[in-house]
Design a protein around this nucleic acid. Sequence first.
DNA 1: ATTAAAATTTAGGCAAAGCTAAAAATATAT
DNA 2: ATATATTTTTAGCTTTGCCTAAATTTTAAT
Lengths: 218, 218
Amino acid sequence: MLTYSEENYLKTIFHLSLGQQQGISTNAIAAKIETKASSVTDMIKKLNEKKLIKYQKYQGVTLTAEGLLAAKMIVRKHRLWEVFLVDKLGFSWDEVHDVAEELEHIKSEKLINKLDAFLEYPTQDPHGDPIPNAKGEIKQVDKKLLSEVETNKIVICVGVKDSSSEFLQYLDKQKISLGSKIEITDIEPFDQSYTVKIDNHNITITKKIASNLFVKEQ
Amino acid sequence: MLTYSEENYLKTIFHLSLGQQQGISTNAIAAKIETKASSVTDMIKKLNEKKLIKYQKYQGVTLTAEGLLAAKMIVRKHRLWEVFLVDKLGFSWDEVHDVAEELEHIKSEKLINKLDAFLEYPTQDPHGDPIPNAKGEIKQVDKKLLSEVETNKIVICVGVKDSSSEFLQYLDKQKISLGSKIEITDIEPFDQSYTVKIDNHNITITKKIASNLFVKEQ
DNA sequence: ATTAAAATTTAGGCAAAGCTAAAAATATAT
DNA sequence: ATATATTTTTAGCTTTGCCTAAATTTTAAT
């Protein structure tokens, strides 16, 4: 049985490992969890003894198969609860993260599987991130950043890279949401600002915004 | 902000205080929480310093107004989650307690009030126990034990005194649920067993069963 | 190749919440 | 009323997860 804290470390290592070949550094974990490197070292030793991570002093850590599955189950719970909060309770997508951070630690497989069924087996959370199924399988949708799309191509917004409430609230303000039709009509060479058509209105966004929106071509 | 453990103590003191004038003893709390008396003394001191309980050495404890409200909010959360588990996720009434014990500690007033609305402001949990509203007010339904009802009077089952899964499963087996129409047709003087008519079937139950069923006359 | 900087680990401590064993206070029984 | 039993508290210890400060290892720079 994992403690609350152990679960948070596994989840964090999982997130930091995405698209990453090397081991995850102590400092990277400390930064993400907002704790001290020395605390991370302590926890790393514990997770290593439990065989949830592979660890050699000074070499960073990677998840073992068992640790990976545990991490995916936490992510699964987190994202299913987010769907619940948005779809059933009417939370907005920028409000759900913190509550889901607590809910993800509730220990009941039956609960999470019944919740999954109640929500009709969603495959994405409110930010477009994939929800692992009960076996830990993740259906990767192919998507790219808006900043990588060529001009005059119509794409659909399918996710956000940054899901801070600041960014999400900005998107709300600009009426950009999952499913929005987006077309880059122009990129200004001077400041790299993008003129884009969102559904039926035209706005200008910075490159930073374009680099945080996932879209799919279709 | 209360810790998980502090919340459990407050809730326990609340439950032990129901229909109780005197202070709650250290041993009573220890028995209910399944911990040692010395641990209870430690926690009592902490809750006393936080002014959530009134405590004098060797004299037992009572909740202060603030402690009482905090306890009611935990009970509110516990019971609302139970309703959610039964009504929305399809749990049976004997399965919900342990999961609700975890869910009751999720800290978000917004969450619980939205959940309340989603469930359409239920006033009772799946065992017939009253759900405090957002202000902590509890609507007491008047009810009595089946064992206190006279023969040949038709009553409605509105709650259970014991909500152990053993008892609840027994009730399921006997097709007794909240809302069941019950009439005592006979009490056997020799062993105090009751012959009762439940909705449309007749069964015999022991006095112990009759002493754990809440009913209302109507 | 050294040296300086950065990252990581170790050592030693703290607070929360539990425990055991012993001491103190209260309650009960003769 | 006194002795015994029960209850409660105190003292001191453990584990978890965090911390600071110092030591060590690795990395980067000249």
